[in-house]
């Protein structure tokens, strides 16, 4: 079932996005270890689903982009 989308910070009235993304956030090591259990399992599920899909048949000729070539 569809659910309400997550609320992003930028959707708050007080949110300000600076001109550059700052990469200085401190992330405790323990939180990385804990989160990796769930996220890495999710990575594995998604990757397995992706790799199990049938490959796109070779239709011969053409390259990606031809459909929208102007």
């Amino acid at each position: 079932m569809a659910t309400a989308p997550p609320v992003f910070e930028e959707q708050r009235s007080d949110f300000q996005f600076g001109p550059y993304v700052v990469w200085s956030e401190f992330v405790p090591l323990w939180s990385i270890e804990v989160e990796e259990v769930g996220v890495r399992a999710m990575y594995g599920r998604l990757a397995a689903a992706h790799d199990a899909e049938p490959t796109v048949p070779d239709l011969g000729g053409g390259v990606p982009g031809d459909l929208y070539q102007l």
Partner: peptide, 18 residues
Amino acid sequence: RPINHLDEASQRELFSGG
């Protein structure tokens, strides 16, 4: 995007894998 663009509850949920 930096993780602080999500509120803390959303961060926990997203990174829980559930």
